[in-house]
Write a protein that binds this DNA or RNA. Structure first.
Lengths: 206, 206
DNA sequence: CTACAACCATACACCAGTGAATGTAAACAC
DNA sequence: GTGTTTACATTCACTGGTGTATGGTTGTAG
């Protein structure tokens, strides 16, 4: 019973993306066909090829759904803890990030991005990872430089090194968690680890 | 001109694995066919199906080639720095690991394991990652407990927490590096980071 | 009210890849 | 030396997936 209204068409597009997200997560990107995606959304392959050029194009569209929320994350954090001290601001941002990443939709997409898809000629998951990593690094470095100005960091610890240390730690934590998301909570494990690291980096008062 | 001698047969088996390793690394696991692997090794698919049951079996065989060297790594480190202090032993082990991981064969296989293959029903890369991670964690925890007994750690830092911190840090470092191995050296970036972390964790003498 | 175009279903040809069956020549046991 | 088995090459049948072309129904602009 085509054709639908414009809002309905947009709804089926979202339904196709939802189906793809679910199936990619369950079976991997390479091993899910467009036919399966269409069926899971209650459509046929005709709908898929109408909304997307091919599988790579569909994959790009999926990633777009996570890029925007990620950008607003840093802004929200800035707004929420802007009045706190620089070091405390980063620490709180980490906790905030843990909480957001544990939302099912976030978790599923990142799991696809990291574990469920191979790198590709026309669809490179590494490029997206690099982007997120760079943005994260820049935001943290800025804060650590402020912290150094306020003498919050240990004297021997440069802001650049502090940023690298934290980024490595967060990255490892993130990958460990994504390996078995249902096994343990990112917040419960990551919280104490991050707090400990900040305690070690902080310049002891007195 | 079959049939070959036993040594020749073993050589073709290795050649097939080499070809698979090379092609998996260049094009990903899902997008390389057994035909391509055979051709790249100067054989036909008949050879592949003789030595391996199917693609998953071939993949397992590839991973076997990296599991054994990894196990001997920890033993070698134990033997080399067994007389050093526990904390120093772990630190040196990290540096040693960096050096080994930068060898092309290691780098390529880990790159395949993490970026070039999707998880699979019968061939799960996550399981291998979990194994390596667990073994690594166990060895480090043991050393950190010794370090705690010798009062080498900061009083507020438990050996469990120290292990988790280091593991997260190493994991993130490893993933960052694998994203662009040719871009920067694991040793050159990881060395200072690890040294800094140990400096922060060490109990100040005096 | 009508003509067009959006939205999707259906049908088609086509190919890459798998797995198993078969062929075969030489290595090895005896 | 002969038979058996090894170590492949070759062939074939089959499947699943892709891309495109075409058809059909209904919103929607004018």
């Amino acid at each position: 019973m085509p054709r639908r209204t414009k809002a309905e068409a947009e709804a089926t597009r979202e339904a196709l993306l939802d189906a793809a997200e679910s199936l990619f997560h369950d079976k991997g990107v390479a091993r899910t066909s467009l036919e399966q995606i269409a069926r899971h959304a209650g459509m046929t392959r005709g709908a898929v090829y109408w909304h997307f050029k091919n599988k790579a194009d569909l994959f790009h569209a999926l990633l777009e759904r996570v890029r925007l929320p990620f950008e607003e994350l840093t802004e929200d954090i800035e707004a929420a803890h802007g009045n706190a001290s620089p070091l405390e601001c980063i620490r709180l941002a980490c906790h905030e990030s843990f909480q957001r990443l544990e939302q099912p939709s976030y978790q599923r997409i990142h799991s696809i991005l990291i574990h469920r898809c191979e790198f590709f000629s026309d669809i490179d998951p590494l490029e997206m990872q690099r982007r997120l990593s760079r943005e994260c690094f820049g935001a943290m470095l800025e804060k650590f430089q402020q912290a150094a100005q306020y003498d919050q960091l240990k004297a021997t610890l440069s802001p650049e090194m502090a940023t690298e240390l934290l980024q490595c730690c967060l990255g490892g934590l993130f990958h460990d968690w994504l390996r078995d998301p249902q096994n343990h909570s990112l917040r419960e494990r990551g919280g104490p680890i991050v707090d400990t690291l900040f305690e070690l980096m902080r310049h002891d008062a007195g």
